[in-house]
Design a protein around this nucleic acid. Structure first.
Length: 385
DNA sequence: ATGTTC
């Protein structure tokens, strides 16, 4: 049986698992993303391929998707940022005491943390990895650490049960396992290219052990990013939630083990999650409303890209100065001293988050608990023209 | 996504 996951070599006549795209007609989903989803549905052992409303094309495999398989698992579907996810912290500071401009001038999370990373990992029950120089750093791409205020509370019962208060700041951290996850995928690709692994093979066990470690390390990384941010503004915080959106996990609801791959897909079976928009948009704190096998136990993980990075750079450079993009329509501040990244990550490069969340609500998958508005978004202090 | 990549 072939285990080759490359889309070119899989004949379109190969048997195809059911494909479901959870998006209303008002959500624009690129045809290429759906084609990628359908190609992945032809992989050996695939049982279900689900596109969430933030589905968009990726490098071979689409992003904003979840896949269940039997007998085989596919590291390539998880991608290189194993363990990437969102953590939310409750900050012991009133929103009206926020000083975004002052904080933007001094916050610096570049470079290794000067504290005891080994000790920090130990406290979190995580083994060190050799990548500790990156522990507590945000990374690139769409990663960020963002101070937020509460825009509106829609479900005060759940909101209070989470220990949240409407007048307090929150901190949302989106980051992953940095170079660690990348090295794990590279080791797999060196041996198997885009092919999958028989789930009873030694290579599958090796990959899963490393994968699980990267997931834990990624979680600890977000915790250290949060601590560095909070240290920088002189505040303390408490973790409210932390969910991973790039991972593969076993499920045993059907008798035979199924492998649930999430590629930019938040879990719907681990309690509340935050679905962030672009840095110039609201983030949605939502609670899943019932377990759903047909949605592969998954939710959208963000707004989803509308423009490629290249297109965003070109279009945004024509229309805006870098300086103007360091503030948003919410009057929030953006620390991003890499100009290319500032343009690539500009709000118009992303789809409207309200439509993504509305699609999830209308599909019966979530209820909105609160909306959160940006106050200060930290991307990078590393200067680059 | 990536102690990237020439």
């Amino acid at each position: 049986m072939r285990t080759d996951a490359s889309t070119e070599t899989l004949p379109s006549s190969a048997p195809r698992a059911p494909v479901r795209v959870i998006a209303s007609s008002q959500s624009w989903v690129e045809g290429e993303a759906v084609r990628q989803l359908e190609a992945m549905a032809r992989l050996p052992g695939m049982k279900l391929a689900v596109g969430l409303p933030d589905l968009h094309p990726g490098k071979g495999a689409p992003v904003g998707a979840a896949f269940t398989s039997e007998g085989f698992l596919y590291p390539y579907l998880v991608g290189s940022d194993i363990g990437c996810g969102m953590g939310l912290w409750n900050v012991d500071l009133l929103a009206r005491k926020a000083r975004p401009e002052r904080w933007a001038g001094k916050l610096d999370l570049e470079g290794p943390w000067t504290g005891d990373t080994e000790g920090f990992l130990q406290e979190h029950g995580v083994k060190s990895s050799g990548y500790e120089a990156a522990l507590g750093t945000v990374g690139g791409g769409n990663h960020f650490a963002e101070l937020q205020r509460v825009d509106a509370v829609h479900d005060s019962k759940v909101f209070s049960a989470l220990g949240l208060e409407a007048d307090r700041l929150l901190l949302l951290v989106h980051s992953g396992s940095r170079g660690l996850g990348e090295a794990i995928l590279r080791a797999h690709v060196d041996r198997h290219a885009a092919g999958g692994l028989a789930d009873d093979s030694p290579d599958a066990r090796t990959y899963l052990t490393r994968h699980d470690h990267a997931v834990e390390w990624g979680r600890a990384n977000r915790a250290l990013v949060a601590r560095r941010m909070l240290d920088g503004i002189g505040a303390m915080g408490q973790r409210v939630l932390d969910v991973c959106h790039n991972s593969v996990t076993p499920r045993r609801d059907t008798g035979r083990t199924q492998w649930l791959h999430r590629k930019g897909a938040a879990p719907s079976d681990e309690g509340p999650v935050v679905i962030p928009g672009s840095r110039g948009a609201l983030s949605y704190l939502v609670i899943p409303t019932g377990e759903s096998h047909t949605s592969a136990h998954s939710l959208a993980h963000g707004a989803g890209r509308k423009w490629t990075r290249t297109a965003a750079r070109e279009r945004m450079r024509e229309r805006f100065t870098a300086e103007s993009l360091t503030r948003t329509s919410f009057k929030s501040h953006v620390v991003c001293e890499n100009k290319d990244l500032l343009f690539e990550e500009a709000p118009p490069a992303y789809k409207p988050i309200d439509r993504v969340v509305t699609d999830l609500v209308e599909a019966g998958l979530v209820r909105v608990v609160a909306t959160l508005a940006p106050v200060l978004t930290y991307k990078t202090r590393a200067r680059s023209e």
